[in-house]
Write a protein that binds this DNA or RNA. Structure first.
Lengths: 195, 195
DNA sequence: TGACTTAACTAATATCATTAGTTAAAATAA
DNA sequence: TTATTTTAACTAATGATATTAGTTAAGTCA
């Protein structure tokens, strides 16, 4: 009866659409029903492109991690030292602000241990290691520092997103001060001195 | 036909059960169907105790925030300065580890701006302010510091929970080093010196 | 042209949250 | 004690969802 045009969707289009949906409506609105409606197809048709809702969540997680990495890598171009860390940090929280749904999806993979997900995340870890190398941290210290930086960035982004910071105090200023303090403390000798 | 005993559930029992369910099965398994089954009642009966799934999520969020606060407050007894911050930090991540589902629920309220939720969270902010007062930070600085500490603690807990730290490196050691670095950097003069 | 692959579809099922209306147990008032 | 009210359970029904199975037609390629 009605025409059944073969739209010819590809995965990229679907993920972009899902990303817009997540950013605009919230991550909990990413359902096969909603996504299908936005794409103009019926829910079962989506199974031709990924393996159900868990499959979509995994692909969207990787999509988000890649996007986050590319923003961070971009921000790291042509800068070094503290300036680099600050620039990358700002890029990180900016992505989380501009694409809250996609950012949230970043940590929403059904199985965080999944090889593909881990692999995507490793690039971010490696980038972090590199920009922190300017501080000449020894082996283990460098890893602790990476964990700290990532904790600050994710914690700050997540809390900002959920309205955790309600004081009338500039958010970007907070972030810069926090990162600077963290870096200064790490570069200092306070860690090696016994208390 | 079958006996219909009036169990006489109260909200506390329900929330405790929901907390166990969340910790054991994961937050996504908190459904009215699962909770009702675990309580030995039918799903619609739950509506006598809270206002649907959103109502449960809100109450569980507050339940978790209160639990988190009490652990933190406990850890703050009899200590001060850096020792206090470290103890409270350790208590924070310990709660997230022991009760991953309840901790996650902490930030899962349907409306984070809800008065009751905000009120529960304020106690944690106030406690943080108090343990950071030992550093004699001026007005705005104190608030930036609170944001930083909370970012580190939430970021660290969330990333640890989702397998974000896969290096073979002691997690508690990372946390202590990170907090110490942050505190040292904040207490130092590096913030006021122009770059 | 003809065979194959693919991306859409319909139909059906199971699970879930939710609402409406019911009932009996418990608590309270007379 | 008895009568009334409140409460916490229930059944039944609805709508939304994910998912599976099987179907169809458009596009691709030999």
């Amino acid at each position: 009866m009605s025409p059944r045009p073969k739209i010819g969707l590809d995965l990229t289009t679907i993920l972009e659409t899902a990303g817009v949906l997540a950013d605009q409506q919230g991550i909990q609105e990413i359902t096969l029903a909603n996504l299908a409606k936005k794409l103009g197809i019926r829910p079962p048709s989506l199974y031709n492109h990924f393996d159900g809702l868990p499959g979509l969540r995994k692909k969207l997680a990787i999509y988000g991690i890649d996007m986050l990495y590319s923003r961070m890598a971009d921000a790291a171009i042509g800068v070094s030292g503290t300036e680099a860390v600050l620039a990358v940090s700002q890029a990180y929280v900016n992505l989380a602000r501009e694409h809250p749904g996609v950012y949230e999806a970043t940590l929403l993979a059904p199985d965080p241990e999944d090889v593909d997900v881990q692999q995507a995340g490793e690039k971010i870890v490696e980038l972090s290691v590199r920009i922190l190398q300017a501080y000449h941290l020894e082996g283990a210290s460098a890893l602790h520092a990476v964990r700290g930086l990532r904790s600050i960035l994710h914690g700050f982004s997540a809390l900002e997103q959920r309205g955790g910071f309600k004081m009338a105090l500039d958010l970007d200023e907070s972030l810069m001060i926090i990162i600077k303090a963290f870096l200064a403390g790490f570069a200092g000798d306070s860690l090696t001195t016994p208390e």
